Simulated assay, not measured.
Amino acid sequence: MLNLERLRVLHAVATTGSVVGAARLLHVTTSAVSQQMARLEQETGTHLVERQGRGIRLTEAGTLLAGEAAELLAHVERVMATMAQHHGLVTGDLTIAAFPTAARALLPSALRALRARYPELTVSAREQEPYEAVPAVRRGLLDLAVVEDWTGDPLALPQGLDHRALLDDTYDIALPPDHRLAGHPTLSLADLGDEQWITSSDGQLCHEWLVRNIKRARIAHTASEHPTQLALVAAGLGIAIIPRLGREPAAAPVRFAPLVDAPRRRVFAVWRSTSTARPSIGVVVDALIEACPVA
């Protein structure tokens, strides 16, 4: 009979692409991974990995068994989640990732509440963009992620993931206090065509929205973090489009004006469908919702 833990090691090697990656994922040594793989090859009577340069790759038999292992481990996770639900236990370890704004605005409050309510639950958090976090959840490298997409530009979620909406976040225009438009109650795209902009890097949501909707947009400066963008706005170096979630005071006064037909992003939590029944998933999602600002 095949050993479940050895199949878990094979799945980790397949998921991460290396013995080192598998060891990090499983929190064991590389020698332990190699030993488990050797024993699994003895049990199956076939080679599961082969050398490729300085690393390894799965053989055809290894790839076949890794696929079966993934299905088996998913079933085991589903069974364990169901049993945890039956007992109502909120225990164990859980890993969560969030994109930077949500990590700053939601995670501190949510994690504090979880620690107070569920002392036997350990939640480890990291900052990670959705394009990295979603595959990591699917592959089992994370238990849950807070991600975002924009109205009209939905984030494609792979099969096997569940999700729950946390909030809709609206964007406003940030202007220097002495800007000619600073006193306007609302602004339209037509008002902003000739402005110099401060925005995120090429490829990020704000940048893509800007170049798509304002054809003549002149991008003067780029910065990944919104506090940096606001500091540049406060210095009179341009204007920016900034989300309301997690908005922080700038280094100097900045005026905010609502934008007609402003873009909105949807913020939501995702996790593997096989772990939906885990009480810990439910309480973490509830804590995230509680941490969301009231609209």
Rank of each mutant, 00 (worst) to 15 (best):
L72D: 04
E68W: 13
A66P: 08
E43M: 01
N3F: 03
G183D: 14
L205F: 07
L64M: 13
T222S: 10
H221N: 00
R266V: 01
A14H: 09
R272G: 03
E43G: 06
D261N: 15
T186D: 05
T63I: 05
G140T: 05
G183L: 09
L167H: 05
A295Y: 06
A125E: 07
I214S: 01
T44W: 04
G88I: 12
T46P: 01
S188D: 03
S273A: 06
E290S: 04
A97Q: 10
E127W: 02
A23T: 01
L161P: 08
D168Q: 14
S280D: 10
G152V: 07
Q229Y: 07
V283S: 11
R255K: 12
W209Y: 09
A136L: 02
H226N: 14
R24M: 08
G67Q: 12
E43T: 00
A156C: 09
I173S: 04
A269M: 06
H226M: 12
R112T: 11
T101K: 12
R115K: 08
G152P: 09
Q35D: 13
P130V: 14
P158M: 09
V294H: 04
G152N: 13
V90K: 03
R112D: 05
T122P: 04
A223L: 07
L94S: 13
E132K: 07
A165M: 15
A113K: 08
T199G: 03
A136C: 01
E248L: 03
P108T: 13
L144A: 03
R180L: 11
A125Q: 05
L157W: 11
T91P: 03
L111I: 11
P263W: 05
L187K: 00
W209T: 00
S109R: 15
L166Y: 05
S275I: 09
R104N: 08
I96D: 10
I242N: 12
I214A: 05
L114R: 04
L64I: 04
V76D: 12
T199K: 04
R117P: 03
A156Q: 10
L161D: 11
A231V: 06
S31Y: 08
R180Y: 02
Y118N: 10
G282N: 13
Q204S: 10
W150T: 02
I56A: 06
I239S: 00
H27A: 13
M83V: 15
L161I: 13
T276Y: 15
L167E: 03
G45A: 03
L58E: 09
I281Y: 12
R255G: 06
A269V: 02
M1A: 15
A182Q: 07
M37H: 00
L141A: 14
V76G: 05
A295E: 14
V146G: 08
